[in-house]
Structure formats: C-alpha cells, structure tokens
C-alpha cells in the first residue's frame, strides 16, 4: 500500500545553510494493508523525519513515496486533502500537538469543519464519543479542557481518537506509546491490533524494541538515517545479523530466558560473525569481487544497500554509519 523507494532527506543547517545534515539515507520500505511495520532506531536516527515525509509535512530530497500505486511524492493542495482522508499521523510530542490557548475540542472541530461539514452536531458527538471510547477515554473527563489540564497520555490518546474519526488506510504512529502507563499502554496496543485486523496499515515508530516486537509484523532497524536491517519480526529478533541490531537486542531483558543464556548466545553469534560482512559476502556470491567499492547492481551504494540474507530478512553492510568502512574490507 505504502512504498518508500530510496527516500532521502538532507537538512540544510548552519548559519547560511552551508552544511548539510543527511538525516535519511536512501530508505526503502513498504507497509501493506493490515500490517504493522515498526521503524526502530535510537534518538536522532531519522524516524520522525521519515514519518513526516510520509505525511507530506516535510519535502523529501530524493526518492519516491508511493501510495496504492500512485506517486505521492509531491501533491497539490487538493490532492493532499484527499490523501489525508486516508493517511493520518499521531505525533511524538502530544503537548506541542495542541494549540495551548484553545480547548482540546477545537482539534476535533477543525477536522469536522474540514472533512465533515454536513454531519449534524449530535451525529458528530456520537462519533466523537465512540472514538474516545476506543482509546478508553471518558468524554466527560476530556472535552472542554485545555491541553495543560490533561496528561501527556490523555493527549496522545486524543490524537489517536482524532485519527480514528477519519476512515483511514494508513496510520503513522510516532512514539505513540511512550507517554502511556502500563495499563493504558495495553489498551492502545490492543486497539492497534484491532485496527490492524480491520485492514489498517500502521507505520509504528519507536525506539523501544520490546514494543516493536510485541505489535509488529515486520521491523525496520534504522541507524543514522540508514536502514541496517529489516525483515519479518521473528526473523530479525531471533537471528539479528547486523552488529548494531545485535547490540540493540542484547540490551533488552527477556522474560523467558536468563541473562546468562542470552549472553552466551550473543557471544557465540558475535564470534561467528566477527570481522565478516554478510552484505559483501552475499555480493561476492553473486560474482562481485569482495571489497570492491563499486555501485551495486541496482545503483544503490554499498553504504545503504541491502541484501536478502534469508527470505524476507534483509541486511546491510556491517559498517555502522554509512560513511564508515566495512569491517571485512
């Protein structure tokens, strides 16, 4: 449904826009209907930037975004309006997502004015209460309040409810769980699973691996704007290949295994993969001289390219940042 192809984003920074910050490097991924794809990466890895480009809030610097077979990389105002009927987002910072001087109701009112001008007040009220119920909020506790009178978790769930008011196909959810406590977190996660079963595709942005594991069908691991590994969740989590993914997973506590087990398993994997690079090995197997830094077959540079290690499990060169050297070189 949603396909990103070699998407790039360069921020101009510095006083005169002189220095470039390559925040997203040739990211390719896709989200299908009824599927949750987690975008996992540490702070500053470019997750929100990708989310905002998908939502058309930021212009991309290169690459394409395709939605249902249509190129939506650049849209006019009208097309964008139609796009937003089907694609919505929830932002990372709920406090800045509401205009501080207005009651939270106004956010919904804006949506209504824009997309449902003909829906009657009572009808709308019914829909609103249903949407709030879905994120386990009591309309009476929430409506008529100012943003600073509500908690981050409440605001974040309001934003989810807002997205639900439109009959969307794709939701970009940027760290939507991070502000919630354990009990509401489960409610919202279950809601996502239910939405998924109704055919909604979700791009789930998170820095929390266990959350990524819990909800997603596939994961994309991002490091400094570059996809280092991606694939079916179980494949990536059971057999992490890239050094960065391995580091990341080694730091996550497992409920079903002791620390020693995990440690031992990771030590074995590290020993096995040390000084190697599966990406270049795969390319070598395809007949390209090992260590040859030429462009790969489809024109993707080695720093950002991926190879299919096992079916549905892709891994990039074992270097960390795109500009580093390959450890096997």
């Amino acid at each position: 449904m949603l396909t990103l192809d070699r998407l790039d984003k360069v921020y101009k920074t510095g006083t005169f826009g002189t220095s470039d910050l390559h925040a997203v490097r040739q990211v390719s991924l896709d989200v299908r209907r009824g599927e949750v794809v987690s975008l996992i990466g540490e702070s500053g890895s470019g997750k929100s930037t990708i989310g905002k480009m998908v939502l058309h809030l930021l212009d991309s610097s290169g690459g394409t975004i395709t939605f249902d077979g249509r190129d939506v990389t650049s849209l006019g105002f009208r097309e964008r309006r139609e796009y937003y009927r089907r694609v919505q987002g929830v932002f990372q910072d709920p406090f800045s997502s509401f205009n501080p001087i207005f009651k939270v109701d106004r956010t919904f009112e804006t949506l209504r004015r824009s997309y449902f001008p003909r829906v009657s007040s009572s009808d709308w009220r019914g829909r609103l209460e249903e949407a709030l119920g879905a994120v386990s909020l009591q309309p009476g506790d929430i409506l008529g309040k100012f943003p600073h009178q509500l908690s981050g978790g409440q605001l974040q769930r309001l934003l989810i409810a807002r997205a639900l008011l439109l009959d969307i196909d794709l939701l970009v959810a940027d760290e939507i769980i991070s502000m919630l406590d354990a009990s509401t977190r489960i409610d919202v996660l279950n809601l996502l699973v239910e939405l998924k079963s109704r055919g909604l595709g979700i791009l789930f942005v998170t820095h929390d691996l266990s959350l990524g594991n819990y909800v997603s069908d596939r994961v994309v691991i991002l490091y400094k704007g570059r996809v280092v590994e991606r694939g079916v969740t179980s494949a990536v989590f059971d057999d992490p290949l890239h050094p960065y993914t391995r580091d990341l997973l080694a730091s996550v506590p497992h409920l079903d295994r002791t620390w020693e087990d995990v440690e031992a398993e990771e030590a074995e994997r590290s020993a096995n993969l040390a000084g190697r690079c599966l990406y270049h090995e795969a390319l070598a197997a395809q007949g390209r001289a090992f260590g040859e830094e030429a462009e790969a077959a489809d024109g993707v540079p080695d720093g950002v390219g991926l190879v299919e290690h096992t079916p549905g499990h892709f891994v990039g060169c074992f270097r960390l940042a795109a500009d580093d050297d390959c450890p096997a070189a």
Binding site: K52, L55, L57, R80, R81, Y84, R85, Q88, G89, F91, S96, S97, F98, N99, T107, T110, L111, S114, Y115, L159, R162
Partner: peptide, 9 residues
Amino acid sequence: FIDLARLSG
C-alpha cells in the same frame, strides 16, 4: 499543532 492542522486538510 500546525502540522496537525495541515493533516486536517
């Protein structure tokens, strides 16, 4: 919230 308004078309 400006972005959210844009998302509201």
